[in-house]
């Protein structure tokens, strides 16, 4: 029971590590997901192909494999960055493919006529997408994006295996110090619960404010 009180600073560091990974990766995933979905519905064929390849490759690769590819692969091409940055890259890119597809399903809920109306008024593809289609698409995909980011928070545990400071990794320290493994994990689980419930609450609030009132 005193595993928490004795090691508060270790837990706290781990917790902060997880929060940091989650926040940065989420931002990267949202930005990339937004860019990729714009590619996927673009009138230019080469962009559509790029978007499709991005989603197909990243969504279908096991995340652990992706971590290996990024952390061990990129340095071979001379790209050496802190492990934490690599972890954010891997998590962010991986999750961006899910965000992209969630956004795309949202785009499909916006009646095509509204896009036609915007185009008939002389708006360009980018204006139509940003002012008419995506704001409405976003409203209908708040819940699935919330789920995706919750999954991201939990997936960030993989980074611990690559010596990035985060919550799950703290169990190694605890077990070396001989603490009861059950309680160690219980507190870790609670830490994740705090992060994921915070994401849930945030998205609940977003949905309340922005969600579609049909």
């Amino acid at each position: 029971m005193n595993v928490l009180t004795d090691n508060l600073s270790t837990y706290w560091e781990g917790f902060l590590g997880t929060v940091e990974l989650t926040v940065y990766s989420s931002l990267l995933a949202l930005v990339l997901g937004f860019v990729m979905v714009s590619f996927r519905v673009a009138p230019v064929a080469s962009l559509r192909v790029f978007g499709t390849v991005w989603v197909t490759v990243l969504r279908n690769t096991p995340l652990t494999l992706l971590f290996f590819a990024v952390l061990l692969g990129l340095p071979r091409f001379g790209l050496v960055l802190p492990f934490k940055v690599f972890a954010v890259l891997a998590l962010g890119c991986y999750t961006s493919s899910f965000i992209c597809e969630a956004l795309r399903s949202g785009i499909n809920t916006v009646p095509t006529g509204q896009g036609e109306a915007a185009r008939s008024l002389g708006m360009t593809f980018a204006q139509t997408l940003s002012a008419v289609v995506l704001p409405q698409a976003f409203r209908s995909v708040i819940p699935p994006i919330g789920s995706t980011l919750i999954a991201l928070a939990k997936n960030s545990a993989i980074a611990g295996a690559f010596s990035v400071t985060e919550l799950l990794g703290t169990y190694k320290t605890m077990s070396e110090l001989g603490y009861n493994i059950v309680w160690t994990f219980a507190w870790i689980a609670l830490g994740y619960l705090v992060v994921t419930l915070a994401i849930s609450a945030l998205f609940h609030e977003l949905e309340r404010t922005w969600g579609v009132a049909r």
Partner: peptide
């Protein structure tokens, strides 16, 4: 054909649809 020039031209021709197509948001 496409692109900016077409967008400019479309602005010169108003269109009204059967299903109104107002921007719902």
């Amino acid at each position: 054909e496409e692109g900016k020039a077409l967008a400019r031209l479309r602005a010169e021709v108003g269109m009204v649809f059967q299903s109104f197509n107002l921007f719902a948001h």
